[in-house]
Design a protein around this nucleic acid. Structure first.
Length: 460
RNA sequence: UCCCCAGUAGCUCAGUCGGCAGAGCAGGUGGCUGUUAACCACCGAGUCCGCGGUUCGAGUCCGUGCUGGGGAGCCA
């Protein structure tokens, strides 16, 4: 007999004479002539209650069922005789697939996130983490759904890259060389002996590759893992995370901002519509203000503010900031928080940043002083999107690379895209985990990634 | 990498001025009950993070290391 998942049983209108449910025991309560067993199979937040009567042949064993044990229950789906749930299963057969010993670490009470991180292989069996990872799955689907509906193509950009200067971030080196005996020529590593015959790293962004496909297929996006070897020890950073990077041909900065705002609103709305139970858990137990935060984002127009005006607002605010504010300096966390949490109290899109603090590929504005960059900042999380209109003029992008003392040779292919049919185009990167943090109210990025990788930590 | 905080039973924590190691939950046993974080009684449970120091005596004070957390920087 094929098993039926609990989420489908719980939403039924009518009972069933014979069903099979497989899952894990969350708790067992014994009455005089029968036991209540609550089963969860991960398909939903809710458990299903099983009534196991003392007349069952293996009732003695059933009475020993411990939290975490795996079972197969066959029985009747019937209206519950007690309050608290609509349906229950009156068991005709209880097969114990495996009995969890008393050392099972998850108890029927609240655990701290810090403890659960030490048992990351078991934590998805808890209500909170089960809900978080169901939402993560739905959110991934929603990303693909959103772009597909709008004619975007999904591009698998490389994870291994030969460039060591894609971005400012530190990169993870990829090598097959024996690190105890690295070949050296003139005190420098001889990468010609390595697997690719040159230095190789893990990607920090699929953007440059995605641009090539935007200039071919029109509107494209990437959605995959990204790696940063920064020694960042914060609740918002991980060494391995997922990023969504749309790239649009024939699109300027305004169109880019439109997409970023619409994407965020749509994805949040999708989860509100499709994961009400899981979201409710976070609104009740993790962040009491979550509903208000999400409603505010979905219903408000994001503020669009040139960097120059943001500086003026900060200067006039009368606030004493730890870090200085003036044109040419990047905004610090305290400044971003002031703008989104105090001044506007909603998401803010900052754009037209000084070119001196932004990378070579961003399009230089007519003022020659700023570039067509945009960051979307949200309350509590901070920067969730960073993007720009790309510099499509060959001479300008080459001049920028010269200014920054960049070696142009590795980018020959990137520069050729500006020689052959170059067009205005734009894109951005959206931090998938940061969006998940925003949607769930989970405050640590390590808790929205199945097995998080951070400096000094690669267990599981 | 820098600053701050924490580390005591399986888990969450208390431990006063430096003087016998504690509670709740979990687990075990028994009881009660269409229960639902069930309830009641009893029982077992410790490298007080490691190392060194001060002291008659250190969970407690000092130094150092490790681990975890928060903040900052960097960024998504």
């Amino acid at each position: 007999m094929k098993r039926t998942k609990i989420n489908l049983l719980l939403e039924r209108d009518a009972g069933l004479e014979d069903v099979l449910v497989n899952g894990w025991v969350r708790t067992r309560r014994d009455a005089k002539t029968f036991s209540f067993i609550e089963i969860n199979d991960g398909s939903a937040l809710k458990n299903i209650q099983v009534i196991a009567d003392a007349t069952l042949p293996n009732y003695d064993d059933i009475r020993k069922l411990s939290t975490g044990s795996a079972v197969a229950i066959r029985g009747v789906l019937a209206p519950s005789q007690g309050g608290g749930q609509k349906w229950e299963i009156q068991a005709k057969q209880v097969e114990i697939i495996s009995l969890a010993p008393e050392s099972y670490p998850l108890q029927k009470k609240r655990h701290t996130d810090e403890f659960l991180r030490t048992i990351a292989h078991l934590r998805p069996r808890t209500n909170k983490y089960g809900a978080a990872f169901r939402i993560r799955s739905e959110l991934s689907y929603a990303v693909h759904h959103y772009f597909r509906e709008r004619g975007f193509r999904y591009i698998h950009t490389p994870i291994l890259t030969g460039s060591d200067c894609e971005g400012a971030g530190e990169m993870f080196r990829v090598t097959t060389m024996d690190l105890a005996a690295v070949p050296v020529i003139d005190k420098h590593t001889d990468y010609s002996a390595d697997f690719f015959g040159t230095e190789a790293n893990l990607t920090v962004s699929g953007q440059l590759s995605a641009e090539m496909f935007a200039l071919s297929l029109g509107d494209v996006y990437t959605f995959g893992p990204t790696f940063r070897a920064e020694n960042s020890n914060t609740r918002r950073h991980a060494a391995e995370f997922w990023m969504i990077e749309p790239e649009m041909a024939f699109c300027d900065l305004e169109g880019n901002m439109d997409l970023g705002e619409d994407l965020i609103k749509h994805l949040i709305g999708f989860i509100m519509d499709h994961c009400p139970d899981d979201l409710e858990l976070f609104a009740r137990f993790v962040d009491k203000k979550l509903r208000g935060t999400l409603d505010n984002i979905v219903n408000s127009s994001f503020v669009r503010l040139p960097y120059r005006e943001a500086i003026a607002i900060l200067e006039k605010s009368g606030r004493k900031f730890t870090y200085p504010v003036s044109f040419g300096l990047d905004l610090q966390t305290e400044h971003e928080r002031f703008l989104t949490e105090q001044h506007f109290k909603k998401p803010v899109i900052l754009y037209d940043y000084p070119k001196s603090i932004k990378p070579f590929y961003m399009r230089v504005n007519d003022d020659q002083e700023t570039v067509a960059a945009m960051d979307i900042l949200v309350p509590s999380i901070g920067e969730i999107i960073g993007g720009s209109q790309r510099e499509e003029r060959l001479a300008v992008v080459e001049a920028r690379m010269n200014e920054m003392n960049m070696e142009k040779e590795p980018y020959w292919w990137y520069l050729e895209s500006r020689m052959y049919g170059s067009v205005p185009h734009s894109g951005f990167g959206l931090g998938f985990e940061r969006l998940l943090m925003l949607i769930t109210g989970i405050s640590n990025i390590r808790d929205v990634i199945p097995f998080p990788r951070t400096p000094g930590s690669i267990d599981f």
